[in-house]
């Protein structure tokens, strides 16, 4: 067997294996290695190098490598701080941590004993000992119902507030978070 043929066999066996796995991560890894092996064949083959398949191989390698990196980044677990975790437990322990982080990163957070004014273009979640209350939820749902509110915080209370338009933009990017938010509104306004 010509030495280049070893690369041909190796590349195709790796591609075949990639078609048999169910996970996309492993599929891409096998595709990358298989592609590199095939590029080895096209480079070393008699009367080669065959530059066209090598160039295409480089293109496929780059695409797969970028996709693999993006996949890796998207799967990176979110590690909540103890304070974030405690707040999440008080709101809804079942909420996905990544969605929670994306929800909270545009929130203003207030704690302690104080009186807080909620602007008419803001909506807030008032976390108390006995549960969670939405403030200006009707204003979130219907712009004609927006009005300023005042909230008195007790010790151990937390107030999370968002600009309504910013929150709507974020929710439109994250359908699952939007569903969670809608369910919260239904529970607060209509039960």
């Amino acid at each position: 067997m010509e030495s280049a043929e070893i690369f041909l066999w190796a590349g195709n066996i790796l591609y075949l294996t990639s078609y048999l796995v169910s996970g996309i991560f492993l599929l891409r890894i096998l595709s990358i290695i298989g592609g590199l092996a095939l590029m080895g064949y096209y480079f070393l083959v008699t009367n080669g190098p065959l530059w066209q398949p090598v160039i295409w191989g480089v293109a496929f390698f780059i695409i797969n490598a970028v996709q693999l990196y993006l996949l890796f980044k998207s799967r990176k677990p979110v590690r909540l701080s103890p304070q974030e975790y405690e707040t999440l437990q008080r709101i809804d322990p079942a909420l996905d941590h990544k969605l929670y982080r994306m929800w909270m990163e545009i929130a203003n957070i207030s704690k302690g004993t104080a009186s807080e004014n909620i602007h008419k273009d803001s909506v807030a979640v008032h976390i108390q000992e006995n549960g969670v209350n939405l403030v200006n939820a009707a204003g979130f749902v219907d712009a004609n119902k927006r009005e300023p509110k005042s909230v008195q915080l007790s010790q151990n209370d937390e107030l999370l507030s968002w600009n309504i338009d910013e929150l709507k933009t974020r929710l439109n990017e994250l359908p699952e978070l939007r569903t969670f938010w809608q369910k919260l509104i239904t529970e607060q306004l209509f039960k």
Binding site: V141, D142, N144, K145, T186, L189, F190
Partner: peptide, 9 residues
């Protein structure tokens, strides 16, 4: 929700 909020108040 928008319809029900408008009717609720």
């Amino acid at each position: 929700q928008k319809l029900m909020v408008s009717q609720k108040t």
